[in-house]
Design a protein around this nucleic acid. Structure first.
Lengths: 116, 116
DNA sequence: CGGCATCCTCGTTGATACTG
DNA sequence: CAGTATCAACGAGGATGCCG
């Protein structure tokens, strides 16, 4: 009844893609609309310039984010979710809501077991 | 309007938890009902004994999976999602459906960009 | 401002062998 | 069958410095 998780299934590909430390957070941050590089960095607490650049480049390569550079000095670059990028928001939001609802008790259980 | 992703928000904790290589796949596999260790290993293609054990232990510690050992020889151990574990299925399924729907074009876009 | 290049460390994962 | 133990490899990620 349940498909086995074979090596090349799309679920695995997605996990490889969003399983890193920053991708989901960046997508969530961009959900509200286009933002500048520095603004994303400010909202995603703790991300380094390197990792933010790397994450955004990868999202761009996958067609989930578009990068717009304005020819100004100082430079101004904005990032925005594409149409496909926006469709990813719903499942990610479901994950976030689950996290808010259940993570506290999960962490509590983890602690309780660890003490023993 | 959008919450910044501060370091200790539940979303990050969840990502740390399910962002590894096997957790989501194991939870998905157990969604259909209790399974023996070897059966899970068979359905999750490529997982090593070590990683499967490690993943299951962590899920157990977090109260998402229960482990039942039957005193037999040879040993028989079954794993099953807890009530909380089952609540995680919906958001994960949403992710899987997105993957089936959109990952092909994401990968295609990635390829198309890479060639340039 | 928005990067890129480099170095380095640590944690996750994998391979292999052994066990109750 | 269902693990445990050990070792080795790899790569994500962080720190730092420089640049158009």
């Amino acid at each position: 009844m349940w498909d086995p998780y074979v090596k090349d299934c799309p679920t695995r590909a997605l996990l490889d893609r969003i399983g890193d430390k920053w991708t989901v957070l960046v997508v969530g941050t961009l959900a509200g609309g286009p933002l500048r590089f520095s603004e994303i960095a400010r909202r995603v607490d703790g991300v380094s310039q390197k990792m933010l650049t790397q994450t955004l480049r990868a999202l761009e390569a996958d067609g989930l984010v578009v990068r717009t550079q304005y020819p100004q000095i100082p430079p101004r670059v904005e990032y925005e979710l594409t149409a496909v990028g926006h469709t990813l928001r719903d499942p990610l939001r479901a994950l976030e809501e689950w996290a808010k609802e259940y993570m506290p008790q999960v962490l509590e259980h983890r602690e309780a077991v660890a003490v023993r």
